[in-house]
């Protein structure tokens, strides 16, 4: 068939130069034209394709969604898209002869669009794009995103969540607790006399010690739902959704003992080893409450623990302003 001209340029040439596969079908689903891209990728000569029924040239398309899409275009005049995710390698098309030998078909995105021929009969255009490169590029992009996501939400030294992640999770857990009318516990864990530890042993030992303690704390929390974050230099915070006062205080006491029994010597402390003070609070946030109340309650509890002589757990209730001391 002759493709005609456009401003003196042969349209057949134009179609042959396209970097997508083109198949033009008539209303009887015979191939009226295909371009060079397609002959190269299919390994068939134009003469083996032109004028042949689609399913004789591409038997793999019979009974497939491509067949439906072609009928839809010819009979109903509606366009279809076949995505690589759902069909991927529908047609036997290959980037290289090597791929053909190993039957590594290219990933395809196929558009099927209605056309009208001169006799106003339904005809259709099948357009095939090679998605192989896009898919591997997306995979790479996803890996990079994952790396980036980890580095922007993780504390570089200890590997636990950073302050930004903590703020996000606290806001969303708070909102969830408001909606579900459930309890939310928050703990702030402060290492006693840690600045003096740093001065005495050097910042490098201090960093090692922070990592060790972070690992011990992380080990004690539930892997799903709870979030341990580095809140400030020597402070960690722990978000515990759905936990009541008794459970929260029991866990805090457990954490305090774990830190103490690590037996990290601290000449700067009067106990002789490194200890932690922990402020705990639990609330069932009302609709008009905000995270500030929860944070400052945990802070108040922590100050009280320090005030009572450190190495202890103090619980503060924002509802009745009462303290409870453990340890």
């Amino acid at each position: 068939m002759t493709a005609g001209e456009f401003d003196g340029i042969d349209l057949g040439c134009v179609i042959d130069s396209l970097q997508v596969g083109i198949i033009i079908l008539d209303s009887a689903q015979r191939i009226r034209h295909c371009n060079r891209w397609l002959t190269q990728r299919s390994g068939l000569s134009a003469s083996a394709i032109d004028g042949k029924p689609l399913y004789e040239v591409f038997p793999e398309a019979r009974g497939s969604r491509l067949e439906q899409a072609v009928l839809h275009a010819i009979d109903d005049r509606l366009p279809s898209l076949l995505s690589p995710a759902l069909h991927g390698t529908l047609l036997a098309l290959y980037q290289t002869p090597g791929d053909r030998r190993h039957d590594r078909r290219m990933q395809q995105m196929i558009h099927v669009v209605p056309l009208s021929d001169k006799a106003q009969q339904g005809a259709c255009l099948i357009q095939i794009s090679d998605m192989t490169a896009n898919i591997s590029r997306e995979r790479l992009l996803r890996q990079q995103t994952e790396t980036l996501r980890r580095t922007t939400t993780q504390d570089a030294l200890t590997g636990v969540a950073n302050r930004r992640k903590f703020d996000d999770v606290l806001a969303s857990e708070f909102h969830k607790a408001q909606r579900n009318q459930s309890q939310l516990a928050l703990m702030i864990i402060d290492l006693d006399a840690f600045s003096r530890y740093n001065t005495h042993y050097g910042r490098e030992r201090g960093d090692v010690c922070l990592s060790e303690i972070a690992a011990v704390l992380q080990d004690a929390v539930r892997p799903l739902g709870d979030l341990l974050a580095r809140y400030a230099g020597d402070e960690f915070a722990l978000i515990l959704p759905g936990i009541d006062e008794r459970e929260a205080c029991r866990l805090a006491e457990n954490l305090r003992l774990r830190v103490g029994t690590l037996g990290i010597s601290n000449a700067a402390s009067n106990t002789g080893y490194l200890t932690a003070s922990i402020g705990v609070t639990v609330m069932q946030p009302s609709a008009d409450a905000d995270t500030h109340t929860l944070l400052s309650s945990a802070d108040v509890a922590l100050y009280q623990a320090k005030h009572e002589g450190r190495n202890r757990v103090v619980y503060f209730s924002a509802e009745d302003g009462s303290f409870k001391s453990y340890g």
Binding site: H72, D76, L78, P79, S80, L81, L82, S83, P84, A85, L86, M109, I135, E138, R139, R142
Partner: peptide
């Protein structure tokens, strides 16, 4: 999620057509 957009496009296409 890398496939989601095109797959949803196709599913939507099938239903709307």
């Amino acid at each position: 999620s890398e496939f989601e957009q095109e797959a949803m496009c196709e599913i939507g296409n099938i239903i709307l057509n």
